[in-house]
Computed example of a mutant assay.
Amino acid sequence: MTDTLTLLLAPDRPIIVAFRDRATGPALLRWAVQRSLITGQHVTVLHAIPDQSLVLPVEAGGTPYGTLIAAARLILDDESRLVCAEFPGAHVTANVHSGDIVDALVSLSEDASLLVVGADRVDGHTGEYLGSVGQQAALGSAAPVVVLPREPRSGNATVVVGVDGSLESEAALRVAAAEASRSGGQLTVVTSANATDAPGGPAEHSTSSALEDIRGQYPQVTIARQIDDQRTPVQSLLFHAADADLLVIGRHGRGARPGILLGSVTHTLLLDPQCPTLVVTRRSPQESSALTVRA
């Protein structure tokens, strides 16, 4: 199993962008391309159209399926040219998928470095969430997943990570430290007092030990430790990540589609992310061994 840090920077693994439409897709593509110029990876932009069996037949007034494919390809080609003109040196390829977008993302994640998806849409009248692509991708993906907010905004050069002493959060901490080092930003390590055991317990000891390793590995990174005893884990991460460039969390929950469960904190944070939210989905061999021992 590939280590997450190695996976995120693997030059032969693409960044996959889920392009929903022209209203939201260009911002996701631009974010991915800017990252790719630093990591040296290429970007694959993916758009899904319904399976042909679900499209109204031509004789019933529907659009020919070939026309739908050509229109989708035209949009992707246009947006790819625009972003490459804006960022010379970018390498972008386009892929039109026939069928379910989550199925395509989960399949492609096996060979990807990162999946980039947008936050799920919200009905402007009822406030109800429309779909769950971000959450389903985060749980089913073999590669890390970043979910971008519906309204992208500039952050304050801070990477925030939530830790609770679990193996998942320790993996997230190491990824967050590497991201802060790469971007030159500050690392804020957030723990909700409601998420761990008593002060001085095993979870706190595990986090402190991991932080010592991080400080030794990334001496140039400024690390701020926040133990929040006023808020729940979700409230605490939403508060501290409000102006951040990136929030990193470990994936709690297991399984693959269908019949999957996502940890409650991850589930809530991905409904309405305050900033780009990176979900660490894959354990390193060392982490997997430790999990087996503890199980």
Rank of each mutant, 00 (worst) to 15 (best):
H42L: 09
L37C: 07
L54N: 12
L28N: 04
L29W: 04
T63A: 12
T44S: 13
G61S: 05
A60I: 08
P26N: 01
L54S: 13
D51P: 03
T39L: 12
D51G: 13
L56A: 13
T24S: 15
L54M: 13
S36C: 06
T63S: 11
S53F: 15
R35L: 09
L56M: 15
E59L: 15
G66S: 10
V43A: 00
H42K: 12
T24W: 00
V55F: 01
R30C: 09
P50W: 10
I38G: 11
L68Y: 03
R30W: 10
L68D: 02
W31D: 11
V43K: 00
V45Q: 08
L46P: 01
P50T: 05
L28Q: 09
H47G: 03
H42E: 13
L56R: 14
P57I: 06
T63I: 14
R35E: 12
P26C: 03
G25W: 00
L46A: 03
V43T: 02
P57L: 05
A60Y: 13
I38Y: 10
W31L: 07
V58G: 01
L28P: 01
A60L: 15
G62C: 04
V43Y: 00
L28K: 04
S53I: 15
I49V: 12
L68F: 04
A48F: 11
P26Q: 01
I38E: 15
Q34S: 11
Q41S: 00
A48K: 07
P64L: 01
A27G: 07
P26S: 02
P50S: 07
P57W: 05
A27R: 10
Q34L: 14
L29Y: 03
V58K: 07
E59S: 15
H47Q: 15
Y65H: 05
S53G: 14
G66M: 06
D51F: 08
L56P: 08
W31I: 06
Q34N: 12
V58N: 06
V58R: 07
S36L: 02
P64I: 03
G62H: 05
W31H: 14
R35D: 08
R35A: 09
L28S: 00
L68C: 00
P26I: 00
I38R: 13
G62S: 05
L37T: 09
H42T: 12
